[in-house]
Design a protein around this nucleic acid. Structure first.
Lengths: 353, 353
DNA sequence: TCGGGCTTCTTGATCGATTTAGTAGAACGT
DNA sequence: ACGTTCTACTAAATCGATCAAGAAGCCCGA
């Protein structure tokens, strides 16, 4: 009599079958109002808080929550306005649908590496334990082991890249990169550095000229930039994390390698803002001595006059959410528009002779 | 042969019992390396992604995730740097512990109201379905129905208020409020408005002089401010949501009621920044014509010169997380320090004669 | 040779609900 | 009065694992 009541004990106390108690909570229309009231009264009196979620999920194969996977560690994700805005969009839809959102910490994965069984186990630990009806992956590499786990578990997945197939909400990253590149080219820039985030622990470093960034979106944007600037080579810098700090430090790496760089293209506003800061503290005038561009168009970007590419992040989140939660939303791939926003951090290239 | 493999089919294929397969995933030390390898090989070959999370949770009574409840709607929470920073702190600990974080949308609850059965059902819907090992509630009123549900379900709970007992990580809100009040009083302010957030849908409105704000932290801070300014009455404004927009609109309400207010105390920096903006756009000089204070000490506050109370938000998140996830962390209540940070938005009260 | 202590694996019960198929009885039309 | 349909509820099977208790085999010392 002292243990937590189960649906069976409540049923017995109310003089009905367990199935009827279940219906009282989940299908009110299936039983008479009087019986339902009696059952809920009895449940209240016994301190029964409703059907056990895990038992319910096991039998019904539904959990009422959707999973969220970020390319970067959760610890950074919440500092990143892009991520929080995306989450806000997802939350808009989830709230309406009555779904919970499960955030899973993800380990970093570098495509070229192979893992021992135990390393891989650790990498997918959170995903394996996650009870979700579907999942959203932002920026995650298509070959990340956790996506395989989700696939094996038949968890519906939507992503923000169309690499590797599957449902997706994307922007035209390559096109946006090209727009940035063309903008810079038209201003006379020839020596351009591209700063990409990744899951590096470490300090920013200049990569070989043919480097392919870790994350799909960064890869695509770089492709576009390269295309627009051909035949000039683009210097590629792996900044490590997607933080202003990494942006600042990337400036060191760039200038150490080539002090005559006239423009820096960053894969995100967050990085770009760090770049701006570092340049200014060296007495370099953004938009005059060195041009800088970002990506996302965060509120802060407007404040700082950052030339960037606008993407509808919150709408992206909403669309991702709807793809999972709204059965009538059947699109396989949604393309959202981007727009080049030219502000004051880009200008004509200084003439070095 | 076409359905998803279960632990039983994998066991059969590997020539062992289901319990052994379970151990291969959950207790590697309980079986020989050779058998474990064989089992995992077979599992891989059959496309088995490991034990089903819901089934596992049902039997083991563990889910591997902790729940997060915000006082405000999720939709706003992600726009609020306080919330995201708190989450970052929680994520720090959760990542380390390998726990997932479940975000639950919560409906608004006004203490004075009583609900019909169905209204209450809707209010606690997310919490009833949530499979979690523990939960963190930030700013939620102690009598919110969902806290009752969690209690009935024996879900361990930690909160950011000590009202109503239970485990908590708190700051001395009343003390901080008093510090703000004394600061203003020493500057000669007598007509002070207090702007509190709540879960209002609506427009800001001036409340009766003895109003008690909805959220515990706001209540405490107001108590402190009132105490310091006695016997002068404090005008209390319910700003609705915790957003800059509500802060801006609160200014209208304040000035409509009493144009001679010389100081505005907001329950958060977010609100205060909105207040600043609205004042400036009316040509009122913050810190000269009207003093303004915030709470939290967000990065933006420093930027804007906002006088505010610093609280260690990320550390608060970490501590909350540890309380749930670290069994050796047994403290029942942790008090974190705050500090009054005086900047330029407060100054001596203008003399109205 | 025996029994105790390990390690490694198995057996059978159990976690707490939902589902499907079905029944009893009321209501209805003819 | 009879068959049909509908409403409101029940019985039994089932979801897929984990747990507690126990057994088989092995090593070891006495």
């Amino acid at each position: 009599m002292t243990s937590r009541p189960s649906i069976k004990t409540v049923a017995a106390a109310a003089g009905v079958s367990p199935a009827t108690v279940s219906n009282a909570y989940n299908r009110p229309e299936q039983l008479s109002g009087a019986v339902r009231e009696r059952i809920l009264d009895v449940a209240d009196r016994m301190g029964y808080a409703g059907p056990d979620p895990t038992a319910s999920s096991l039998r019904s194969r539904r959990t009422g929550s959707i999973g969220m996977l970020f390319a970067q560690a959760l610890t950074y994700a919440f500092d990143d306005p892009y991520c929080t805005t995306l989450l806000a969009g997802i939350a808009d839809v989830a709230t309406e649908a009555g779904s919970n959102i499960l955030l899973m910490p993800v380990g970093p994965h570098v495509s070229s590496r192979t893992y021992s069984r135990d390393e891989e186990m650790r990498l997918v630990h959170g995903v394996r334990r996650a009870a979700v009806d579907g999942a959203i992956a932002d920026g995650v590499q298509p070959d990340h082991p956790m996506l395989r786990v989700l696939a094996e578990r038949d968890v519906p997945l939507v992503r923000t890249t169309d690499e590797g197939g599957g449902r997706s909400v994307v922007v035209d990253d390559a096109g946006a990169g090209r727009a940035l590149g063309e903008h810079l080219r038209s201003l006379g820039h020839r020596r351009v550095a591209f700063v990409a985030d990744s899951t590096g622990d470490g300090r920013p470093r200049v990569e070989p000229a043919d480097h392919r960034p870790l994350f799909p979106y960064a890869r695509r944007r770089l492709e576009g930039v390269r295309e627009a600037l051909e035949p000039h080579e683009v210097m590629v810098v792996d900044a490590g994390t997607n933080t202003a700090r990494s942006g600042r430090r990337a400036v060191d790496a760039i200038l150490a390698r080539d002090p005559w760089v006239t423009a820096v293209v960053a894969t995100s506003d967050v990085l770009a803002l760090g770049v701006l800061e570092a340049l200014r503290s060296r007495g370099v005038r953004p938009g005059v001595d060195v041009s800088v561009t970002g990506f996302d168009d965060l509120p802060q970007a407007a404040q700082e006059g950052l030339t960037t590419v606008h993407q509808p992040v919150r709408e992206k989140g909403r669309t991702l959410g709807r793809m999972l939660l709204d059965p009538s939303f059947t699109a396989h791939r949604v393309l959202l528009p981007t727009e080049l926003v030219v502000r004051t951090t880009t200008g004509t290239a200084p003439h070095h002779s």
